[in-house]
């Protein structure tokens, strides 16, 4: 138990970084109703760009912004594949993600791992200073959620929400749905790459394999957030808070099960099963409902006749 509580602040700090990534996933998966697999590549891209720039003595904040923009470019490519090439979103994301593997290696000078020393650079989040990491992580989360809350409440942001909700309605009201989808993918992957930049700082290196399964972790966080907080968090900003907390909870649970003795190599298996089951739940519910409704209707009719 003592080990758990000692590990807790660190798990929360890392969880906040996953939480930021999950916010990015939320934009595509929930707001735009697209499954975007670009994130598996753009997370590593964010880390790679950040580490390479910082170790080449670029200002840390500028490096962070550049990492964000690199993610935006990745999202843009997926958006173009999807809208201009007519490729299904999921495949468009896979193509970008696949190509990012090569690009990320190039960014990192053909190394699969580039270290960044916290003693040499004044990193924003780092394992060596968990208190600072927690504060920076929390501030960034609040800032991102506040910005997104504002953005999706604007005329342009509302049009993006309408695009995700009902494309026919959006187009009938003069909304350029393709452009909005591209924009959503750009924004989402920018945020994911930003999370990648934070993650690389926290881990002390950027790694070519870092983003593998990011979409699953992101979805897990979104689902945990909705399952646990969905009933109380209705407002958009609070939903995003729920998603972030979902990321934190995911990481804490992961820390706990590994300490209990789960083989870390099995983590991906259990994460995938978890996401599959919770994505399945609403479907199973909908399969049950019609018959339940029919039954209710029957009863109602009988009642009416009597």
């Amino acid at each position: 138990m003592a080990i758990f509580f000692n590990a807790l602040p660190g798990a929360v700090a890392q969880g906040l970084i996953w939480g930021i990534m999950a916010i990015g996933v939320y934009i595509t998966f929930k707001v735009l109703d697209l499954a975007d697999l670009t994130v598996d590549g753009s997370l590593a891209t964010g880390g790679a760009v950040f580490v390479m720039l910082t170790t080449n003595n670029v200002n840390i904040y500028i490096s962070l912004i550049m990492a964000f923009l690199a993610g935006c470019v990745a999202g843009f490519i997926t958006g173009v594949f999807h809208t201009a090439f007519g490729i299904p979103a999921i495949l468009a994301g896979i193509l970008t993600q696949f190509s990012l593997y090569s690009l990320n290696l190039r960014i990192m000078g053909n190394n699969s791992n580039v270290a960044i020393n916290f003693r040499k650079y004044n990193l924003l989040v780092t394992l060596s200073n968990i208190n600072k990491s927690l504060i920076v992580g929390a501030v960034l989360v609040v800032l991102i959620i506040a910005l997104l809350y504002w953005f999706f409440g604007t005329q342009f942001g509302s049009a993006i929400r309408a695009t995700g909700c009902n494309e026919a309605m959006a187009r009938a009201n003069g909304i350029n749905t393709n452009r909005n989808k591209v924009f959503g993918l750009v924004l989402s992957n920018g945020i994911v790459a930003l999370a990648g930049a934070l993650d690389a700082q926290y881990q002390g290196s950027s790694d070519i394999n870092r983003g593998r399964g990011a979409i699953v972790i992101g979805l897990a966080a979104v689902i945990i957030g909705e399952v646990i907080f969905g009933k109380i968090f209705k407002n958009f900003a609070l939903r995003l808070v729920g998603v972030t907390l979902g990321g934190v909870i995911y990481y804490i649970v992961q820390t706990v099960v590994i300490q209990i003795g789960l083989n870390p190599n099995d983590l991906k298996l259990f994460s995938a099963l978890f996401v599959a089951i919770f994505l399945g739940l609403p479907y199973w519910k909908s399969q049950l409902k019609p018959s339940a409704k029919k039954q209710a209707k029957k009863n109602g009719e009988v009642g009416a006749n009597a």
Binding site: T154, Q155, S158, A162, M169
Partner: peptide, 24 residues
Amino acid sequence: GTAATMEIVENLAIAKKRGQRRTL
């Protein structure tokens, strides 16, 4: 014809902007 997950007033505001620039 409508966006189910959005409020009545949000739907109307979107329709109000039909054919116009949507700003920030």
